[in-house]
Nucleic acid binder design. Sequence first.
DNA 1: GTCTATAGCCAGATAGAC
DNA 2: GTCTATCTGGCTATAGAC
Lengths: 203, 203
Amino acid sequence: MVRVSFREQVLHAREEAILASVNRLLAEKGFDAMTVDEVAADVGIAKASLYKHFASKEDLAAAAMVRVLDLALEKIESLRADALATPLDQLKEVARWTLQVQLAGEMPSLPAQNSALRAALAGHAVYLDRLMQVSEQLGTWITAAQAAGSLNAALPPEIVLYTLFARACDPVLALLKAGGAHSDAQIIELLLSTCFDGLRARR
Amino acid sequence: MVRVSFREQVLHAREEAILASVNRLLAEKGFDAMTVDEVAADVGIAKASLYKHFASKEDLAAAAMVRVLDLALEKIESLRADALATPLDQLKEVARWTLQVQLAGEMPSLPAQNSALRAALAGHAVYLDRLMQVSEQLGTWITAAQAAGSLNAALPPEIVLYTLFARACDPVLALLKAGGAHSDAQIIELLLSTCFDGLRARR
DNA sequence: GTCTATAGCCAGATAGAC
DNA sequence: GTCTATCTGGCTATAGAC
């Protein structure tokens, strides 16, 4: 247990609050549409104070991404504890978790092709580290599931990994949600089915 | 054959050139990152001239979307001519076509959750009309394929439709392309496989 | 309809007092 | 570290001459 001063605790709590707001706004509007003024207003502090904690808007987004990746690592770790689950089950559970986060409006969506943001993330050491950790953990399960014959072995592992990342921000979820015809639980099961079982019928 | 004056032909050609540029820039950087200055420079005319043709930036994007949807309708129409193809085949061919367009860097990607743009599109009659036409054509094939037992009948048709739309802009393609490990043809087949066959192995 | 020049606005970032 | 007030730059859109 590391000793932290009271002041440091307050600081940390404030930064957590900031990241929670950023996370939600990023999920709701995306990086470009989100403004720093909004974030400040949502947290309830002045914009200049924000910049004492984070150097730039890109930095805010990166920190939010690190936060989500850390949560993913926690989830992965808890799934690793279950020795009975097959690698395929574990991959499915991770996918289910990402959909739950997205349904809760807490999955930050970063337009994949953005220029300024992409460059900032590509140079953000902590973000890259977390991304690699998640990729490695999932990669282990992917190759294991392919070896076990439960995951299509004809697919390069990287495409499976990319697909899982992409489905975590799948716009189909928002469309289904907007349609209003299905419950949250149904939406998740339908999306998991299209992802793992595919659109074609299985006999 | 409708008679059109020479002047109208020139006008039309210029607007086609504008839309081609918008299409490419929209595919490359997305709506928010694209600037009207860039479009004007790319076409080789002054920005003010652009605004004589299109009332706003949103209007530009909507026109580009209509153009792509019209191309999709053409593709669909040509596929309808093939009486031997099954509905599933035809859906796959449409999906393949969207991936080819995306690979060519000509699939305009509109951040699905954008505010100003979404509102503009939701009020754009021509865009909505084309979107409905495409949806109806695909819907026919979807229900036919489900009746034939080739498409998973447990999926609501709408989720199949949404999934096909979403895969047309799937960020996984850009990631695979950036990886450089696969040819364009391989990328398309891999993506079609993950979409229609799913990640799970089929026996 | 095309251009140059500019209005008007908004968002990211900072100065400087407390 | 927090605030108010401000700077700065870039972007959409338009005025007005030709």
